[in-house]
Write a protein that binds this DNA or RNA. Structure first.
Length: 257
DNA sequence: CGTGTTGTTCAGTT
DNA sequence: TAACTGAACAACAC
């Protein structure tokens, strides 16, 4: 379920387990997740040492003393660390083998992928235009960027060119906490609504990053995501489920007017 | 055999 | 131009 908090967690995983150690081997178990490279080309990473791991929105970039490894997780991708030689999962697609541990890129549905980039501008080319990170964007910049857009606030929040890192669930959570209707026009929000959105964005991301994912505890909208009869954790009225921008949206018709 | 799913991209349309 | 819609990608659960 990779949105910004999950990817930030993967970044920390890589930083803790990969940085400073030499990559002994790369096992490409399914070459179809390689997007701009080949198993053979990936061999360039072997015997390289990772120096730094960067997260840009939902993208992860592992810089080494050679090429950079660029990862995206799609809807079902994940990263995990195991001891070397532990039994493999059928959805492990690429395994980075270090001296003592393996880092596995796992993705059942393969909507994510792995890229190789030589140089900073190659990294930018892979990732494409991205707005400021949702975790650090200032209220002023948020206001400016929302004011520029003509669409509805929810699709705008999910647009990575506007703010990087938010997906469907986080957007719902942020809008619910800020008491903003997802169908309202982004540019029509007044200063007070933008301020609520900004505070909500920061709170939701800070807490989610701390938890490593969006919490599903009872005070979060996401706790109701899979319920047949979802109820607002704040006012206890029935939540509304509808399709916005092609995705299932959950909101409270009472709180988010 | 339908439907739905946390992301992104593209073609076609408004 | 900007923005919207639906389909596609792949795999599985129900």
């Amino acid at each position: 379920m990779p949105e910004l908090p999950d990817v930030e967690n993967y970044r920390r995983l890589l930083a803790a387990h990969l940085i400073g150690s030499v990559l002994l081997r790369i096992d490409v178990l399914d070459a179809s997740v390689l997007r701009n490279t080949t198993p053979r080309h990936m061999e360039k990473m072997v015997e390289r040492t990772f120096r730094h791991v960067d997260r840009r929105g939902k993208w992860l970039v592992a810089f080494s003393d050679g090429p950079a490894l660029v990862l995206h997780f799609g809807m079902t991708g994940s990263l995990l660390v195991t001891p070397c030689g532990a039994s493999r999962d059928r959805y492990d697609r690429v395994v980075l083998v270090g001296e003592h541990e393996e880092v596995r890129y796992r993705d059942p549905r393969k909507l994510g992928g792995v890229w190789l980039a030589e140089g900073a501008s190659a990294v930018d080319d892979v990732i494409g235009p991205q707005g400021p990170d949702g975790r650090t964007v200032s209220r002023r910049e948020l206001a400016l960027r929302l004011g520029d857009r003509r669409g509805g606030i929810k699709p705008v929040l999910m647009d990575q060119r506007v703010i990087a890192g938010l997906g469907n669930m986080l957007s719902d959570e942020v809008l619910w906490r800020a008491c903003v209707d997802p169908t309202r026009s982004a540019s029509a929000l007044d200063d007070h609504a933008v301020e609520r959105l900004h505070r909500s964005l920061r709170d939701v991301l800070r807490r989610s990053v701390r938890a490593g994912r969006i919490p599903r505890t009872s005070s979060w909208l996401s706790s109701q995501r899979d319920e047949d009869q979802p109820v607002c954790p704040r006012c206890h009225q029935r939540l509304e489920r509808r399709t916005i921008a092609g995705r299932t949206s959950l909101s409270c018709p009472i709180c988010q007017r």
